[in-house]
């Protein structure tokens, strides 16, 4: 009762928060159990990765805390020599699998997010330019994109990775590996951003608000950034989400193939590579838990992307 009175006094417009809660966007989110579940899983995993130093019972990267005697402890059982208990067991070097997964996710997510940001920045910029300027600029950008699309992204990433590795001095290689990984995945993934943004730009640039800006005398740069860019971001958001899942998998694939994150700084892919060596000797947990985490992470991000695409598509409303 009291609440209603406050509202009427404040005027007909409900508060910003209330409006956001009642908007079509959040409504469609609240009424999609898949989206809510996927969002929950992603949030738990991300929080786990971000707060890994606080949550993880061990620091797997600190050799001083490792005890080789703890190697190959099965999950949920006390080690037969040291009596220590590990939730998800340990690997061959006695590292706690639960902790390595949390730390590994940090690397996977960091690489994935950075690579997508790089791809997005590049793709959106080139797509905007191609769509708005047209002519030769467009031809060159889009032909490069077409050529790149004829190779599988993972091959392109391996190629870039190989070149970058060749030109970095050996002593920096381990440190640089993560950045090279980001560059490789980012460069292999800009094409879809560019294509979508170019298409959306071609539609937007013929709208009359763009003509109005032109006739005021705004520069092409200002029109692209201030007028067109905000209106082509919806599809970019959808692609970014789905690309994130793909980038995390690409990183895992590269690491699995041994060209990605080094064993000293293992990502989920590195963990899976290590784990599959022990698969047939009975230590299944070393492979299964990192693999399940990767699956859960990629799948929930993908499901969120699917929902986002439907929610932002005005035709499906």
């Amino acid at each position: 009762m009291a609440e209603t009175r406050v509202e009427t006094r404040a005027g007909a417009r409900p508060s910003r928060l209330r409006r956001a809660w009642q908007s079509d966007f959040t409504w469609s989110f609240r009424h999609s159990p898949v989206a809510v579940a996927a969002f929950g899983v992603v949030m738990i995993l991300i929080l786990g990765a971000v707060f890994a130093p606080l949550i993880a019972p061990h620091n797997p990267f600190n050799p001083a805390t490792l005890n080789l005697m703890n190697g190959f402890t099965p999950p949920g059982q006390a080690n037969e020599f040291t009596g220590e208990l590990f939730l998800l067991g340990t690997d061959d070097q006695g590292r706690d699998v639960f902790s390595t997964i949390l730390y590994g996710m940090r690397i996977s997510l960091f690489v994935g997010v950075s690579a997508v940001l790089l791809a997005m920045l590049l793709g959106v910029m080139l797509g905007l330019m191609a769509g708005y300027v047209g002519g030769w600029t467009e031809s060159i950008i889009m032909r490069v994109a077409d050529v790149q699309l004829t190779f599988p992204a993972i091959l392109v990433a391996m190629l870039i990775f190989g070149i970058a590795k060749g030109i970095t001095p050996p002593e920096y290689r381990n440190e640089m590996a993560i950045w090279v990984l980001i560059l490789a995945i980012g460069l292999s993934d800009w094409v879809q951003f560019a294509r979508v943004v170019r298409g959306a730009t071609l539609v937007e640039k013929n709208k009359e608000y763009v003509q109005a800006a032109k006739l005021i005398g705004r520069s092409p740069f200002a029109i692209m950034l201030r007028h067109i860019l905000p209106n082509v971001l919806n599809p970019v958001l959808v692609i970014a989400t789905i690309s994130l899942a793909l980038a995390i998998i690409a990183e895992a694939t590269l690491s699995f193939l041994g060209v990605g994150a080094p064993p000293t700084k293992p990502s989920l892919g590195t963990l899976i590579r290590i784990g599959q060596e022990f698969m047939f000797s009975g230590e299944w947990w070393i492979l299964l838990f990192p693999a399940t985490t990767l699956l859960a992470l990629a799948l929930s991000i993908n499901l969120m992307g699917d929902w986002l695409r439907d929610a932002l598509n005005p035709r499906l409303r």
Binding site: K207, Y209, Q211, A212, A213, P230
Partner: peptide, 9 residues
């Protein structure tokens, strides 16, 4: 312009 829906960003 003609189309009031397309002429405002």
């Amino acid at each position: 312009f003609q189309d009031p829906y397309a002429s405002l960003n």
